[in-house]
Simulated assay, not measured.
Amino acid sequence: MRINLPTWLTLFRVLLLPVMVVVFYLPFRGASLVAAMVFVLAGFTDWLDGYLARRLDMTSAFGAFLDPVADKLMVAVTLFLLVQSAPTGWPGILLAVTAAVIVGREISVSALREWMAEIGARSKVKVAFLGKLKTMMQMVALVVLLLQHDAETLRLYHIGEALLVIAGILTIWSGLDYLRAAWPALRGDKNS
């Protein structure tokens, strides 16, 4: 198997995750800014690998498999870091519940897509605009929360928290859309 440039970018995104984790925990001034910058770089490679794969017609089976895995790892790892370091009380509870909803939906929709592909109906659960909007909201929220995770004042933390809750609501909504699209097949309808 020959790995093309878009797939190398996806692999680079996966390799950025441990870098972000290490930076997140390092005790130096500006660590949260650097962790957020690593996250933004990973997000940029996500856009770039997709753009290059389409523009240069460099799609591959391995790249198509690895890209969504890298995306989900990026979000899940970042959410775990933020929940672990969240303030105590309601802000931490809200963040933990929202993170559980987001990760739970990602696992559920991935399993649903895999099952629909097995029965030859994957096109019924393809990525929709709502899913893209949810992803964009998550990314912005995670950058804000990464920037603020160890700040002396939580000026932007509550904005990031609110954006993540909105992303959580969009997560549920888009997950229900996927479920609705797959429902005939899940019920066992012969005409689905």
Rank of each mutant, 00 (worst) to 15 (best):
G104Y: 09
G104V: 09
T171W: 07
S32F: 11
T78Q: 10
M116Q: 15
R113W: 06
Q84R: 14
S85Q: 14
M136R: 00
L130G: 07
L176M: 15
A100S: 13
K134Q: 03
D150W: 05
W8V: 10
L163Y: 00
K132G: 02
A117Y: 12
V40T: 13
A61F: 07
A53R: 09
D150P: 00
D46K: 06
L163H: 05
L179S: 11
R13K: 14
M136N: 01
T59N: 08
G30A: 04
R187G: 01
L176P: 10
M137G: 02
L16N: 10
P184E: 09
L48I: 01
D71V: 02
D71A: 03
V125R: 05
A182D: 09
A61M: 06
V77E: 12
L5D: 03
T135G: 06
A100E: 09
V69Y: 01
L186T: 13
R155H: 14
G160S: 04
R105C: 12
A35K: 06
I172E: 06
T153H: 13
A141M: 04
F62E: 01
D67F: 08
L52D: 12
Q138V: 03
A117S: 15
L112G: 02
I3S: 10
I169M: 14
V40W: 01
I166E: 05
G168L: 09
L26W: 15
V21Y: 06
G63M: 04
R105K: 14
K126G: 05
V23K: 08
Q138Y: 04
I119S: 07
G104L: 10
G92P: 12
S192Q: 00
K134R: 11
A96M: 02
A141Q: 03
L112N: 01
R113S: 07
G160V: 01
A42T: 07
P87V: 06
P68E: 06
V97W: 07
L15V: 14
G168I: 10
A181V: 05
S32K: 05
K72T: 00
D189M: 04
M1H: 05
L176N: 09
G188T: 09
T153V: 10
E114A: 15
A167C: 08
V103P: 05
Y51D: 05
D71W: 03
W8C: 08
E118W: 11
A100M: 11
N191Y: 02
I172Q: 00
Y51G: 03
A96Q: 05
S32E: 14
E152N: 05
R113P: 10
W8M: 12
V127P: 02
T88E: 15
V125H: 03
V83S: 07
A141N: 03
